[in-house]
Amino acid sequence: MAPGRGRGGARGGGRGGAYNAARGTITIAGTELNWDLSGLEIQRAPAERFPDAPPPQAPPATADESAIVQHHLAVRDRIHEGPFYTILNDGMRNGLKRKANEPAPTEASLFNPFTDNQTYSSKYLKVRRRIPKLDSRPYVVDLFPPELRQILNGRSSGESNKKRILSVSKVNAKSQLDRMLNAEEARTKEAEARGDDDDDEIDEDEEAEEEESKPDAVDEEDNWSAVSSDSEESDDDYNAEQYFDNGEDDDIDDADPYENTYE
């Protein structure tokens, strides 16, 4: 193709990308191309600065891989339910000292006004340890450095009557979330056929257990829960809170009006 024709085309079009249908040539950025591009839409607008680029998707898990994930979750959840798992919730990111210019986390700054307001149901909240419960299992004390043996030994002499036993799972446990969702699915099917009275009995048993097995760290800051649970246990019929409890529940779950009746 002759360059002269290309320049002519460009001039005729008056724009950078001129298309001359009569000659079947196209000029893009000053270069004349001889291809027949009829029917091709040329993008005249400037290119998008951040074009939509979907990220590459990982292939789905194979059977082996999902088994690995399940095993991991099972082991992790058991550790989380065990005596070593702690949550400090003190607003620090790591164990280092605060820098001098960083403000110390205050009660107010740690308080989330949307979720942290105490409601009646917060007495059921799962309590996380702030300090590990070391006296629940046996240790091989010789393997620990002398300065730490104190902690391991000191407790055991105090309550020598209580036997320390490792907690093991005897079957390959499921992860907690799984258990929750599965139990849930099974229950929705037979939800209507359930006897309500049984439910409530179980509930109360669980609560009683929960109170007993609470670690000591709780009592220091959660005295409100102690009060309300006392009233619960004492079967106080004149307790106003209990009255409201029933009312609230009816609002949340109107599927079964007799669900929360106490006998």
């Binding site: 909240l125 929750m180 139990a183 849930e184 669980e206 609560e207 949340i252």
Partner: peptide, 25 residues
Amino acid sequence: AKAERSDVVGNEAKYLSKGELEALK
């Protein structure tokens, strides 16, 4: 935290709404 509450464990259908179960899933 709600799903772990002692009254909810074992009674998920009663205390958790459908949307919450979806979110858990």
